[in-house]
Simulated assay, not measured.
Amino acid sequence: MAWLRSDPSLEELVEAYPDEWQQVQRDVGALIERDDAQEITAYITRVSRPQAPLPGRTRSAKERLSTELRRQMTVHLLKQAILSSTTGVSEGRIRFNLVNGFVAQKLLFRRDLERKPVSLWQFRVVWPLLSQRRLLMPLVQKKGIWCFYSRPLINRLADLIGDRSCLEIAAGDGTLSRFLADAGVRVTATDDYSWSDSITFPDTVLKQDARTALRIHQPEVVICSWPPADNPFEQHVFTTASVQQYIVIGSRHEASTGNWAAYRQQNGFDLQHDERLSKLVLPPEVDHAVYVFTRTAG
């Protein structure tokens, strides 16, 4: 179990436990064959967390080991499947060719993987011309990049927030807060640094988990971009008395992002799916959605 906590690769898992691997292949074979990206995503969400023990039953060490082995193998396998389904690449390394890589870099990044506010008219002209645009998100998600922000999106978010204090939770590399600050928003970026193996956190992103950040900063507006599905922290936004509005940039597909149980259980905020803002999150193929929770008068 200690070895499993070190996050071994699928190849290492298969070599060490071939019998468990055969069972996993049988269990998910039909799912892979259907090649449905949304179904695979939903299944990943269900199996990504360790299984809770049944009430009144204590599982043996052998059973716990088998369950965790199969869980990790399944996650590895399905992530590979959804990558293939999303990109169309089933073998070899996924990469841009020279032309597509150069154009995407100029369009979306200031330098290296430092994102910039994207010109919407340039994006609409150039993006359809990229023959490998399906590869972009699978390539950058490894570095904690789940979307790109257009310049009009930043301006409209800045207008929505106004002069109220704003807190970004799960801010990652702080890109969204940086853009909002440049647009005149009083925003503080925070993250618990749990993704430090893939994200480089700048000094401008305070190392604070969401619950602590909400308690310390008492923000009027909270914003979060692509919160993990079924995360444990968004529920605290709705119980923080200072919060007037909560803005979530995520997906139209509930299995992909956000704590939808918390969204539905709270009763102090009205929820609006803002279609206009949603269309300003890039690229459009990902089915982004912007949800705005506004505290009710009561």
Rank of each mutant, 00 (worst) to 15 (best):
residue 2 A to N: 11
residue 11 E to R: 14
residue 18 P to C: 00
residue 24 V to S: 06
residue 25 Q to K: 15
residue 25 Q to G: 14
residue 26 R to T: 14
residue 26 R to D: 12
residue 27 D to P: 08
residue 29 G to L: 13
residue 31 L to W: 09
residue 32 I to S: 10
residue 35 D to V: 13
residue 41 T to W: 08
residue 41 T to P: 13
residue 43 Y to I: 09
residue 47 V to S: 02
residue 54 L to G: 07
residue 54 L to P: 12
residue 57 R to L: 08
residue 62 K to I: 06
residue 73 M to Q: 12
residue 73 M to I: 09
residue 74 T to N: 06
residue 97 N to M: 10
residue 101 G to E: 02
residue 102 F to A: 15
residue 118 V to Q: 08
residue 122 Q to Y: 10
residue 122 Q to F: 08
residue 132 Q to F: 09
residue 136 L to I: 05
residue 141 Q to D: 06
residue 156 R to W: 01
residue 158 A to Q: 00
residue 171 A to F: 03
residue 171 A to P: 03
residue 179 F to W: 11
residue 180 L to Q: 01
residue 181 A to R: 13
residue 184 G to V: 08
residue 188 T to G: 05
residue 191 D to C: 01
residue 192 D to A: 15
residue 194 S to Q: 15
residue 198 S to F: 12
residue 203 D to Q: 10
residue 203 D to P: 11
residue 205 V to R: 04
residue 209 D to I: 02
residue 213 A to N: 00
residue 215 R to H: 11
residue 222 V to W: 04
residue 224 C to N: 13
residue 229 A to S: 15
residue 231 N to S: 14
residue 231 N to C: 12
residue 241 A to G: 11
residue 247 I to N: 04
residue 252 R to D: 10
residue 264 R to L: 10
residue 266 Q to N: 11
residue 270 D to H: 14
residue 279 K to M: 07
residue 281 V to P: 02
residue 285 E to F: 04
residue 287 D to H: 13
residue 290 V to I: 05
residue 292 V to D: 05
residue 292 V to Y: 04
residue 296 T to W: 06
residue 298 G to T: 07
